[in-house]
């Protein structure tokens, strides 16, 4: 996958030329005291998530740490037992998203949030074409012109560096890496402000993983899009994330700049994680 496909064609400006946005603007995501129980188990126990426009926030932890649950809460997929969740978007700025009814929640998910799951079956219709999977997002918003659906979904697939000659193939016959690119194209088709990534490259070959991470990095550079990346893989976190949160047993044990956390972990659990990786 090379950078010859000109993904910049769909982008209006090049924010990378400006001073780091993080210094100038308030956070996009402000979620405080997120809490989620499953029966008597506290899967998420009072977690704060703050993410700035254009940054990649990594959440790392072993399975069962609650990191994927945080992502599902941020995607409004399941109700939280507590906490507030704001997206700094004009129309929503003063709204706790958890308080919305399911119609408004769906609206927020459609227009402002994209998600890529580890398991492509969760995010894709495996028997419809790749382009159809992307077009479905546009259909939801009421787009009813076939030509527009076709060109926009192809543009989004191109931005995800998906091979253009395979846009009519169903994900069921595509490789794992390509399936993730279809998910990505679908997630960014409506130019959301927030992109959630749940172990997006887990299970892929190392070489494929690298090219998908490249694509993610490029998209983040070219678009003002905030990413929250959940992974158990410190390599992935190191490659992508600007900041990182370490979770254990539903709580955040440590957070900070990625390099700082990975080079100089303070919490014994993080030290153990980093040590295990090395």
């Amino acid at each position: 996958m090379t950078d010859t496909s000109n993904p910049g064609a769909v982008v209006k400006s090049h924010p990378m030329l400006d001073a780091p946005i993080i210094n100038r603007v308030p956070p996009l995501v402000v979620a405080r005291n997120l809490t989620k129980y499953y029966g008597s188990i506290k899967a998420v126990d009072g977690v704060d998530v703050i993410a700035y426009p254009g940054e990649i926030l990594g959440i790392v932890g072993e399975s069962g740490s609650g990191k994927s649950t945080v992502l599902r809460l941020l995607n409004l997929e399941e109700p939280a037992n507590g906490g507030v969740y704001h997206l700094q978007i004009n129309s929503l700025a003063n709204t706790n998203l958890f308080d919305l009814d399911r119609f408004d929640k769906r609206d927020v998910r459609v227009h402002h949030i994209g998600i890529v799951y580890q398991n492509p079956h969760l995010g894709l219709r495996m028997r419809y074409s790749a382009s159809g999977n992307v077009a479905e997002r546009l259909l939801i918003t009421g787009e009813r012109t076939f030509g527009t659906l076709r060109s926009k979904s192809n543009a989004s697939l191109q931005a995800s560096e998906f091979p253009i000659d395979r846009v009519d193939d169903p994900p069921s016959v595509l490789s794992g890496g390509m399936q993730q690119r279809v998910q990505l194209a679908k997630a960014i088709a409506l130019q959301p402000e927030l992109l959630l990534l749940d172990e997006p490259t887990t299970g892929l070959d190392v070489s494929i993983q690298a090219t998908v991470l490249d694509t993610l990095k490029r998209i983040q550079r070219l678009r003002t899009i905030t990413m929250i990346l959940v992974s158990h893989d410190l390599g992935v976190i190191r490659t992508l994330a600007d900041r990182v949160m370490v979770m254990r047993n539903g709580r955040v044990v440590e957070q900070g700049l990625t390099d700082q956390i990975l080079e100089d972990p303070q919490d014994p659990y993080t030290q153990q994680l980093v040590h295990a990786k090395l």
Binding site: F103, R106, R125, Y128, G132, A135, E136, L139
Partner: peptide, 18 residues
């Protein structure tokens, strides 16, 4: 109830593609 007919349109889209 939600007038959520995206998938119906998707079926038509797929027919046109194929």
């Amino acid at each position: 109830a939600d007038a959520d007919y995206g998938q119906m349109w998707l079926v038509l889209y797929e027919q046109l593609v194929r």
